[in-house]
């Protein structure tokens, strides 16, 4: 099948790639752009491990076609830290032991960051429902929820 040429922005870098019309954005990020931070846990939009943002909107990159990235701004887990400086969520996840195997972590960080940008003061229930699309099989979510709530509190204090 003929490939499509796509010009887009990933983590503020301009990138170009050729992709098969059937390839997902997740495939393109991982296999063509070497950004393996987003994970494929299901490929059907049910686990959230592939979470990225497209023009600021949280999506499952396994449900977006690579070709749809044309002219958009994509942000992935690799772009969350600014150089050496980790995002407060990243610090808190380590501090709270909010990961065991860590396969869900990239997606959860992307999703949690997107939540805090919209709602800097979420309740526990709001955090739980926002993250309901991100499966974690290891932790039982307890430490994840606490890490997100505490990051939100710290960020509110700092701003």
């Amino acid at each position: 099948m003929k490939k499509i040429h796509v010009t887009t922005t990933v983590n503020n870098d301009n990138v170009e790639f050729l992709c098969d019309p059937r390839e997902t954005l997740l495939d393109v990020l991982r296999d063509r752009l070497n950004l393996t931070g987003a994970k494929e846990g299901c490929g059907t939009g049910d686990c959230g491990a592939c979470s990225v943002t497209v023009d600021g909107r949280l999506v499952c990159s396994c449900l977006v076609l690579g070709a749809e990235a044309e002219g958009k701004k994509i942000a992935t887990v690799e772009g969350i830290a600014k150089g050496e400086e980790l995002h407060p969520l990243q610090h808190k996840f380590i501090e709270y032991a909010a990961l065991q195997c860590g396969i869900c972590t990239p997606g959860i960080l992307v999703a949690a960051k997107s939540l805090l940008e919209k709602n800097p003061d979420p309740t526990e229930t709001e955090v739980r429902y926002w993250l309901a699309g991100n499966l974690c099989r290891c932790t039982g979510y307890d430490k994840i929820i606490r890490a997100v709530m505490d990051t939100a509190a710290d960020m509110r204090e700092a701003s």
């Binding site: 931070g37 887990v77 980790l86």
Partner: peptide, 8 residues
Amino acid sequence: DGLDKVTG
């Protein structure tokens, strides 16, 4: 391995 796991 915390840093590696929160940065992808």
